[in-house]
Design a protein around this nucleic acid. Structure first.
Lengths: 242, 242
DNA sequence: TTAAGTCTTTGAACACTGTTCACTAGTCCC
DNA sequence: GGGACTAGTGAACAGTGTTCAAAGACTTAA
């Protein structure tokens, strides 16, 4: 009987319409200015109807976050690897920075905003994140193999370091915290070069990425529901503790 | 006549009460969860009364931002300079990171949040910011003078680079974007070491800080009202342009 | 064909939010 | 005492996320 299937199909269509309306509003007005009522008005349903498709407003943004990661993954994957491994790393992370400017709402959702609900490890979109990180780690590994980065550099650790250090300029640029006349792009550019100089020289590390079995697939971001085990001091020693 | 003065004093007291209530709520509940009604309830006034002291909710947070910068300045100023200039730089920026954890609400307000109103250069609290930056730049300068950082390193540019690169781990830590089990402190620690390694090795820079006359006093953050001139390509050459 | 059952969708409400404004009440000065 | 001033209020406006009883549409069984 195709009735159930047709019903499911219709329901899926409405669900998709909700997501599309949310995404459009989200991109144009920013995610904090998207309201259930605005989405409902756009798809010509009542606000209450949305709640039979998504348990809460947060869950709509889970779906949007997945789209964000897909977009970033696509942007990074679009870069054709060249002969120069260092240049590839540069371009890879510059794409990350450009993404933060082009899709600042997605970027905030994915990496910055604390008020947004956290994403679980079991989240469907996690596969995209893993793929993306694997690509980035592989590019770093090639620099290590080519002797450009310091010998013994762990690609996954280095990936986290670059991500950590290079997220700053993106955040500062988006938040407009530079003085008038100062160029955020120049700051980002210089920070990237600083990071590269650091990776070339090498530096002591204590960071331990999760999932050692699949060490090239660090999980990011994580769930807030799951209990986060405290590992500080177990495998990592805090050298800066007061 | 002391009547006017007494009135002013009383008014100032209410103003102070508003700010204290806002700060308490802000610290405990986060700045997005502070409402005019909650503040009003706390000081036992009507919500409308607040509006005769502050033009809008935003202006209350301007005052709070000033307090944030004062707190950070105090934290950095508390550090006693030692014999090792590099260790001083390390401690200076670790204080910045610790501040981001201890006062995450203030940190977001000051450096991350895009929805918060931007601070003007004419803002009274700017003096504190300038002092703080001067201290940080001086510490970097001492490392340059001691031959620890690459010769020819501009302390003010380097200050911006460290700030840019080291803001990332603070943001990521606060936003809980690491995998469960991964230690944000370890990431911050390692990024700081990476930055230091980069500064030791030296890297090409294109960033031009504002206020060249008072080059040790970069203005940060800035106003959104002022028109930001585009300087890319004028004095800085974008080496990453596609 | 009709009745029963299922499930989607709605209108109205609740409890919030920032902000505005006519009005009250108290103080000050002449 | 009367007029001027003003701090403060209550009520409202327009917005927010969310809930729930009720209605409606559609499917299924008799």
């Amino acid at each position: 009987m195709g009735i159930r299937e047709r019903q499911d199909r219709e329901r899926q269509a409405v669900r998709q319409a909700i997501l599309e309306a949310a995404r459009d509003l989200f991109i144009t007005e920013g995610y904090r200015n998207v309201s259930i009522r605005k989405i409902a008005e756009r798809i010509e349903y009542s606000p209450a109807a949305i709640y039979s498709y998504f348990p809460s407003k947060d869950d709509i943004f889970f779906a949007l976050a997945e789209e964000g990661f897909r977009r970033l993954d696509l942007k990074i994957r679009d870069l054709v690897a060249g002969d120069d491994p260092l240049e590839d790393v540069r371009r890879c992370w510059w794409a990350y920075y450009e993404f933060s400017k082009e899709h600042r709402e997605f970027f905030e959702l994915m990496f910055v905003d604390r008020s947004v609900p956290q994403i679980t490890d079991q989240w469907p979109g996690m596969a995209v994140v893993h793929d993306m990180l694997a690509v980035a780690a592989e590019r770093i590994q090639r620099c290590v193999d080519a002797g450009i980065f310091a010998p013994g550099t762990d690609a996954v650790v280095a990936l986290h370091l670059v991500w950590g250090a290079f997220t700053g300029p993106a955040v500062i640029g988006n938040a407009c915290r530079l003085a008038p006349g100062e160029d955020p792009d120049a700051l980002a550019r210089d920070v990237l070069e600083l990071i590269i100089a650091g990776l070339k020289a090498g530096s002591p590390t204590t960071f331990i990425p999760c999932s050692p079995q699949t060490s090239d697939i660090p999980c990011l971001p994580h769930t807030s529901e799951s209990v986060r085990p405290v590992v500080t001091g177990v495998r990592g020693v805090d050298i800066h503790d007061t």
